[in-house]
Amino acid sequence: MSAQTSAPAEVTREVEPGPDQDTEPERPRRSPLLVIGLSLLALVLIVALSASLLTPHDPRAISGPALQEPSAGHPLGTDVPGRDIFAQLVFGARTSLIVAAVAALLAMAGALLFGVLPALVGGPADSVSNRLMVFLLALPGLPLLVLVGSLAGESHLVVILLIGFLGVAPNARILRSQTLTLVQRGFIGASQGFGGGPLYVLRRHLVPGLGPLIVVGFVNWAGLAVALEAGLAFLGLGDPSGISWGLMLNRALAQPSIYFSPMWTWWVLPAGLAVTLTVLAFTFVGVALEPSFNPRWLRSS
């Protein structure tokens, strides 16, 4: 991991404070948050990949009478038209991870295009794109998502694209700042002066300098995308025949008597916890990586 490139002593201090820890600066402690977060993510990933092995039911198909209690055939019972809830839960992991990956990829790709590239080119390209990012930043995200989502009708793709798009501006700003400081420090100019080609500069200076921030940005935006997607589906936006944790919650809470029956415990709770744990996992990883990656923290501490 590229954490080694940044000063390990400070990493240690952030993670495990106390003066005696600083005596061994070579080995940064692995943050428990990182371990927990990564294990949770691995779990979600495994569930998502092996969804069809975990349940014999098609999450979209009616596979039994409506509103069944949990049984051997239906570990979490069935919902209103009689679809298996457990199947929706495990296939929902797929949806969430796909949304997270696509949206975060889009956000970071956009951030590279509108943050890093103009900053390297400099001049009017930089100031124009920066002005544009500042403007985009001012647009309120969730209301925009709701409007577009309701207009997009049954298309899930539009929502995913928009979540990614919303991530461009904030990440572009962060990456631009970092690129500018990298450029300003002069070692890029120096290495060019010694005949380093663009690829060399990219490999030796830009990737180590920006990579950590890109990783953190990706993780953070992936977590936000999971939360946003679930929230939108919960509001009834997106594909009504799709499989999504938010949609499960939407349907469950639409049952008039949901709170007064034990259904709550096998319908609302698993879906809600699934969203929460996934978002939490991304956050943990992001938080654990941030102090070791954030150059400002390193300098100030």
């Binding site: 001012a138 995200g141 919303l166 904030p170 946003l228 941030e290 954030n294």
Partner: peptide, 18 residues
């Protein structure tokens, strides 16, 4: 929705989602 997260002491890391 967690529209706003602010890592501690990170004005530099800055704004998220609007």
């Amino acid at each position: 929705m967690n529209d706003h997260r602010e890592p501690p002491g990170s004005e530099a890391v800055g704004p998220r989602s609007g």
